[in-house]
Design a protein around this nucleic acid. Structure first.
Lengths: 157, 157
DNA sequence: AAAATTTGCGTTACATTATAACCTAGCATT
DNA sequence: AATGCTAGGTTATAATGTAACGCAAATTTT
C-alpha cells in the first residue's frame, strides 16, 4: 500500500473510478447524476487539488452550462450531502472523495507548493480525538482536519 | 485541571489575562498595542466564541473608529501574525488565544449549539499527526484542527 | 394516461468575506 | 528639521456564497 496522490500514478484510473463509484452510488440511492453533475464531478477530479467554486463555474460556463453561482453551489451541495466530495475549509475549495460514503473522519494533507491534497483516514488520530472529546463530554459531529505543509516531492525540490 | 471555557467561570479574568499577556508580549517584541488594536482584542475576548470580521467592524465603528474593512482586517492580521488570535477557518471567524505565543498545534472544539469554542493542545493528537506525516515524508507547516459538535451542557439540554 | 408532486436548474438580486492600492498622519531615529 | 517607518484612513473592487422565485422535466400517484 504505497499508493498516494503525491506519487506519479495513472490518473485516468482515479477519475474513472470516481465516476463509476458515483454512478453506482447514485443508482443505489435513487438520485440522479445529471449531465451537469457528472461534468462537475469530472472537473473536480481532474486533479488531486481542491478547486474553487468560481473556477468550476467558469469551466462549466465555457462549456455551455448556465453561469450563475447557484448552478455550481447547488451541485457542490449535492455532492457534499452525499459524501462524494468534501469542502476544504481553509481554502474555500472542493475536492473529490473516494472513501466509503457516509460520514467518516478524514485528514487532508495539503501541499502549499503544488496544491496536491491527499485525504487519509487515520484511526489513531480519530481515536485520540474521540478520547479527548469523551473526556470533555463533547459530542463530535463534524471534524475538520486540514494539514498544510510540503509534500515529499516539493520538500526535496 | 477542570478548567474549561465550557464551564462557568469568572470571565473577567480571561479578558484581563489576555490583555495583560498582549501588553507584555507587545512590549517584549517592540510592537504597539494601539487603542484600536487593544479594543479589537478586547471585543474578540468578550466571549469564548469566534467572532466575524464584520461583526467586529460594526462594533468598533459604533465606537467611533473607522468603519472600512481594511481597518479590522489589518488588525486581525496583526494579531494572527503574532499568535494572539486564531482564525477559525470553518466559520470564517476569529478567536483569542492565550496559549504560548509562537506556532503551536491546537485543536478547536466548537459547539454548534452555543457557539462556545475551546482551544486545546493535545500532544497525543499532535504526535499521531506527526507520525502520519513522517510516514508520508510530509512536512507539516500549519495544521487546522476544528471539531464541530455539541458541548457537554448543550448535549444535556 | 392524466394529475399531482418532486427534482433540477434557470434567473435575478443580493449578502458576506476579504484584498489591492494609494494616501496621510504620527512617531522614531538621526 | 529631515528621513524613514508604522498605523491606519479611504476608495474601490475581488472572491465567496445565498435567498427567492419560476419553470420544465422527471417521477409518483391516482
Amino acid at each position: 500500500m504505497a499508493s498516494s496522490v503525491f506519487l506519479p500514478h495513472n490518473h485516468q484510473h482515479c477519475v474513472q473510478d470516481a465516476l463509476r463509484q458515483a454512478d453506482t452510488y447514485c443508482e443505489e440511492q435513487g438520485v440522479r447524476l445529471t449531465p451537469l453533475r457528472r461534468r462537475v464531478l469530472e472537473l473536480i477530479w481532474e486533479e488531486h487539488k481542491p478547486i474553487g467554486a468560481y473556477d468550476l463555474l467558469a469551466r462549466i460556463a465555457s462549456e455551455g452550462f448556465n453561469s450563475a453561482p447557484p448552478t455550481v453551489y447547488r451541485t457542490l451541495d449535492f455532492f457534499i450531502q452525499h459524501g462524494l466530495i468534501h469542502k476544504v475549509e481553509s481554502l474555500n475549495a472542493y475536492i473529490g472523495c473516494n472513501h466509503e460514503q457516509g460520514s467518516h473522519t478524514s485528514v487532508f494533507f495539503i501541499c502549499q507548493n503544488c496544491g496536491v491534497t491527499e485525504e487519509l483516514q487515520n484511526p489513531a488520530i480519530e481515536g485520540q480525538l474521540a478520547l479527548q472529546a469523551a473526556g470533555m463530554g463533547f459530542q463530535i459531529n463534524h471534524p475538520t482536519l486540514e494539514i498544510k505543509g510540503l509534500c515529499k516531492a516539493c520538500r526535496h525540490a
